[in-house]
C-alpha cells in the first residue's frame, strides 16, 4: 500500500462512471412516469427502496435528520451495490484483463469512508453545537483522556469501513478469477463451473451485504453523533 497525491488510476474512474450511469438510468426509468395512482414495475421497486431506507434510518436518526439522511444512504447503497457487482460480470475491463469493481480499488472505498467521517463529524457539530461536539470529543467518557479514546474510535471507524468493503470485494473477485485457473480437462471444467457458480452466487450476496453494512454503519455513526445523550 502506498499513497500518491498525483497518481490516478483510470479503470475505477470509468467503472465508477458506468456505475452511477446504471443507477441513474434505473432511477430515471423508475421515475419516468412517477404516478400517484397504483405504481407498477420499477417505480414500485424504487418506492419500496425509499420506504425501506426511510424506515431503517428513521429508527436510528433524529427526526430532523432522517428524511435527508435516508435518501443519502439509499444513494450510497445503490451505488455500492452496482459497483460491487459490476466486477463479477464477464466483461473486459478498462485497461485490459477482466473488469474490476471500483470498490476493489482501495482508493474508492477510502475516499467514500473519509467523506462519511466528515459527514459524521458534521452531524455532531450540527446537532450538539460546536461546543458540545468538542466537549464530546475531549471530555467523554473521561476528561482529556477521552480525546485519545475518541480519536482512536473515530479514526478506526472510517478505516474499518474502507478496508472491510475493499477486502470483501477484492477477495470475491480474486477467488472468482481463481476458479478459472483450475486444472484443465473435463474434471477441471466441471469443477470450475460448479465452484465458480457457487462462488458467484456467494459473491453477489456478499456484494449486497457489504453495501448494506457500509451504508448502515455510516447511518448508525451519524445518528450516534447527532443524538445529544452520548
Amino acid at each position: 500500500m502506498n499513497f500518491s497525491l498525483t497518481g490516478f488510476e483510470w479503470p475505477p474512474f470509468w467503472t465508477g462512471l458506468v456505475t452511477i450511469a446504471l443507477v441513474f438510468a434505473f432511477g430515471l426509468i423508475a421515475a419516468r412516469r412517477a404516478s400517484a395512482a397504483v405504481p407498477s414495475g420499477s417505480q414500485n421497486v424504487m418506492e419500496t427502496a425509499i420506504e425501506t431506507f426511510q424506515d431503517l434510518v428513521g429508527q436510528m436518526a433524529p427526526p430532523t435528520l432522517a428524511p435527508n439522511l435516508s435518501l443519502l444512504a439509499l444513494t450510497l447503497f445503490l451505488m455500492l451495490v452496482v459497483a460491487n457487482i459490476i466486477g463479477l460480470l464477464p466483461l473486459p475491463g478498462f485497461g485490459g484483463g477482466w473488469i474490476h469493481s471500483p470498490t476493489a480499488f482501495l482508493s474508492i472505498p477510502s475516499g467514500l469512508a473519509a467523506t462519511m467521517f466528515l459527514l459524521i463529524q458534521w452531524a455532531g457539530i450540527k446537532y450538539k453545537g460546536l461546543g458540545g461536539w468538542i466537549y464530546g470529543w475531549v471530555w467523554k467518557p473521561f476528561p482529556v483522556v477521552g480525546l485519545v479514546i475518541n480519536a482512536l474510535e473515530q479514526l478506526v471507524m472510517p478505516v474499518s469501513l474502507a478496508f472491510r468493503l475493499f477486502g470483501n470485494i477484492l477477495a470475491g473477485e480474486l477467488v472468482l478469477r481463481m476458479t478459472t485457473h483450475l486444472p484443465h480437462g473435463i474434471g477441471g471444467v466441471l469443477t470450475t463451473f460448479f465452484i465458480g457458480t457457487l462462488w458467484l452466487i456467494f459473491s453477489v450476496v456478499i456484494s449486497l451485504i457489504q453495501a448494506l453494512i457500509f451504508t448502515i454503519l455510516t447511518v448508525a455513526y451519524m445518528s450516534i453523533q447527532a443524538s445529544n445523550e452520548h
Binding site: 500518491s4 497518481g7 443507477v23 432511477g27 435518501l71 451505488m79 482508493s107 467514500l112
Partner: peptide, 27 residues
C-alpha cells in the same frame, strides 16, 4: 488496487455526489 491515490478518492466522492444530485433531482 491497493494503492491510495488522492485523485481517485476525490473522483469517487465527486461521482457519489453527482449521483446524489442527479437522483435527488430526477428520481
Amino acid at each position: 488496487s491497493t494503492s491510495l491515490t488522492a485523485g481517485n478518492m476525490i473522483a469517487a466522492v465527486l461521482q457519489w455526489v453527482l449521483l446524489l444530485v442527479l437522483l435527488r433531482w430526477f428520481v
